[in-house]
Design a protein around this nucleic acid. Structure first.
Lengths: 132, 132
DNA sequence: ACTAAATCGGACTAATATAGTCGTATTTAA
DNA sequence: TTAAATACGACTATATTAGTCCGATTTAGT
């Protein structure tokens, strides 16, 4: 099946939430409760976004997250790459041929990689701000 | 993760194989051995393709499968719909809102459905024959 | 009529990926 | 010192995908 993960949806609506809380620091707990997302799961998602410099964080009792990049400058493809692991539609395209029986006479690889490219282009043209 | 299933790959290269054996009836066993696909798994895939009138079959000891539709008239989207269950990228788009907490104020649904459409259009324009 | 070998079809198991939880360390304002 | 927040890794649970097994039916050949 071809679909996005829950985590990506969580990331999107969380970024939206944070973006709406202009400049104020937002706690995981706030988002979790308001949007009904499991706290610990969300925490890890936001930590990833922090690591990739989409969010900034402050620790300690009054800590939380805030946006440090503009949502209209973050392509969806970037978010997908952060949250999921790459955007590749077929196995043989993201890691070194782990035992593809075909190799040279694999006729489907080329056209599939074309689809891959077109798909990635879609993701590149959409900005996270489109989802706010 | 966003990716196609092994079954879809199997279906594609099998259709290619059958297409190359012009008019001759092909047994599951042939394809299975030549392409290294598990026999029983492949059998079920071909049965599905038969049910959807992409392949024709004859039973009995000399039985097997043959193409009954032209590969250049079968869009990839059709194959995806047959093999996987639908093409939808996000949950809430293929079955009735099974408890989406957002509903009316879900801002991400619209833009995601746009991506969904663009993605489907890609799949519609690719024909299975492109993979042969 | 019997047999071998094929499709048919459903139930079952195994492997993998996704979703979610838990525990513990560290930070920091009051 | 404490309460409440992030940080982080290990763990469990659930869902999806991949693959297996078994028995039924069909059919050509002997």
């Amino acid at each position: 099946m071809v679909k996005f993960s829950k985590k990506l949806e969580y990331a999107l609506i969380s970024l939206r939430y944070i973006s709406n809380s202009k400049d104020e620091i937002v706690r995981v707990r706030d988002i979790s409760e308001k949007l009904g997302i499991p706290h610990d799961l969300l925490a890890k998602i936001l930590q990833k976004l922090k690591k990739e410099n989409i969010l900034g964080s402050s620790q300690g009792i009054n800590g939380g997250y805030k946006l440090i990049r503009k949502l209209n400058e973050i392509p969806l493809s970037e978010l997908v790459n952060i949250i999921e692991n790459g955007t590749s539609i077929v196995e043989c395209m993201h890691d070194e041929d782990n035992g593809c029986l075909m190799n040279d006479n694999c006729s489907i690889k080329d056209p599939l990689s074309k689809i891959q490219n077109e798909f990635e282009n879609i993701l590149k043209t959409k900005m996270v701000s489109d989802f706010v």
